[in-house]
Simulated scan of single mutants.
Amino acid sequence: MSIRCVAFDLDDTLWACRPVIEHAEQHFYAWLVAHYPRITTQYTAAALIENRVAYMRQRPELHYNLTQLRKNWLESLAHAHDYPAENLCETGFTVFWQARNAVTLFDGTREVLEHLAAHFITGVISNGNASVQHIGIGHLFDFVHSAEAAGVAKPHPEIFRQALAMADVAAHEAVYVGDDPLRDVQGAADAGWRTVWFNPEQRPWPGGQAPDAVINNLAELQTVIPLL
């Protein structure tokens, strides 16, 4: 059984997500302070995040499209504080999104991706709205697929099936690498993919269908993939 395609999750697989999002939220709040003070007079930075989280939880039908969900929330903020919605939605989202893409790759990640890109079809399957093109690694992937484009989010197997069509490979020829046991490992396995659990913190497996391999560092993929 020969692997032809290697695809990746992004957040917490190629870079640490939490510090990126925390910085982006702080950057966005500072922008609001300067341009939309009626909002920041009512909400501290922490309270505004709580407001956003509560808003998003009430709209699970849009969880596959985080961009639209955040823009809808921004529109609701504008209306609630008597501001024109368009600039807050579009410019406000761009302020957040640009900071959200200011990531620091895990050590050695770029070198691993360069090596794999020379030997396999490589791709991205992500629920988030990070842009590998904006980050500067888009040239290392043959395809990029998102929950927004798919119409469903991981772990739904349909997003993985659509990615197989983009890569033009069969499920048994593809391996998916991700940090989340449910969204990444279970979701890809349900679509017939081979799976690699990226587990740098060496957490115990929480249960459910086990991955085909476990790695603590992306460099281990060069050894693991030939064994799948």
Rank of each mutant, 00 (worst) to 15 (best):
L66Q: 03
L66T: 03
L69Y: 02
R70M: 10
W73Q: 12
L74A: 05
S76C: 04
S76Y: 02
H81R: 06
D82Q: 13
P84K: 01
P84N: 03
A85H: 02
E86D: 15
N87E: 14
V95P: 11
V95Y: 01
V95D: 04
F96H: 07
Q98C: 08
A99N: 12
A99Q: 13
A99T: 10
A99R: 09
A99I: 07
A102R: 11
V103A: 09
T104E: 15
T104N: 12
T104H: 12
F106Q: 13
D107G: 05
R110V: 03
E111F: 02
E111G: 02
L113N: 01
E114M: 07
E114D: 11
L116D: 11
A117G: 04
A117L: 00
H119K: 14
F120R: 07
I121L: 06
T122D: 14
G123N: 00
V124N: 09
I125V: 15
S126T: 15
N129D: 15
A130C: 12
Q133E: 15
H134Y: 14
G136N: 09
G138W: 10
G138D: 13
H139N: 13
F141L: 00
F141R: 00
D142G: 15
F143W: 05
V144A: 06
S146G: 12
A149I: 03
A150V: 04
A150H: 08
G151I: 01
G151K: 01
G151E: 02
V152H: 13
P155F: 11
E158I: 04
I159A: 00
I159Q: 00
R161H: 15
R161Q: 14
Q162M: 08
A163H: 11
L164C: 02
A167D: 10
A167W: 07
A167V: 05
A167L: 04
D168I: 00
V169K: 06
A170P: 05
A171C: 08
E173D: 08
A174K: 00
D179A: 10
P181L: 04
P181C: 05
R183T: 13
R183V: 06
Q186F: 07
Q186D: 14
G187D: 09
A188Y: 14
A189D: 14
